[in-house]
């Protein structure tokens, strides 16, 4: 299913996608294939959702202010509370997790005041206290994630 070219594109260009007028041509030159082949392979990866996008990854808190929030929501209220939370445009990711703290999401606001206003809003509308877990240190090591692309098993259930 995944060709050698697909695997090379997935593993070798997570960090250093070329910043040049013809980036796909540059990749093609490195891999010894044509620009068209590289573009169609990326389009296939994109269509299959094997890549979420090609683009810059921003350092947390360089633009605006973000924090991780956890809430303890009674099981029967989870869907209702999640939909209230999701309604806030400042909510970026929202996951249900198996724990007493069962709702986990990231808030991105313009500044501290905006962030606290959103938190107050969420607590007011849901009637549930939030636990704020802002980032104190990011142990980011620039190595990339080496994907093992052998015998993938695909499934349709949704989890991350």
């Amino acid at each position: 299913m995944l060709s050698i070219l697909h695997k090379q594109l997935l593993n070798n260009f997570q960090q250093e996608f070329p910043l040049s007028p013809r980036p796909f041509q540059d990749i093609a030159n490195i891999l010894g294939v044509s620009e068209d082949e590289v573009l169609s392979a990326y389009r296939e990866l994109d269509k299959l959702q094997f890549i979420s996008r090609i683009g810059p990854v921003i350092q947390p808190n360089y633009i605006g202010l973000s924090t991780l929030i956890a809430m303890q929501v009674p099981g029967e209220q989870l869907s209702a509370v999640a939909s209230i939370v999701n309604h806030f445009p400042e909510v970026n990711h929202n996951y249900e997790r198996e724990h007493l703290f069962n709702l986990w999401f990231v808030l991105i606001a313009d500044d501290e005041h905006h962030l606290q206003t959103v938190i107050t809003g969420i607590e007011g509308k849901t009637g549930i206290k939030t636990m704020q877990l802002p980032l104190l240190e990011d142990y980011f090591i620039n190595l990339g994630f080496q994907l093992d692309l052998e015998d993938n098993h695909q499934s349709e259930s949704v989890c991350t």
Partner: peptide, 8 residues
């Protein structure tokens, strides 16, 4: 910008 890349 931390990196520019294809995000798996």
């Amino acid at each position: 910008i931390r990196r520019i890349g294809a995000i798996p």
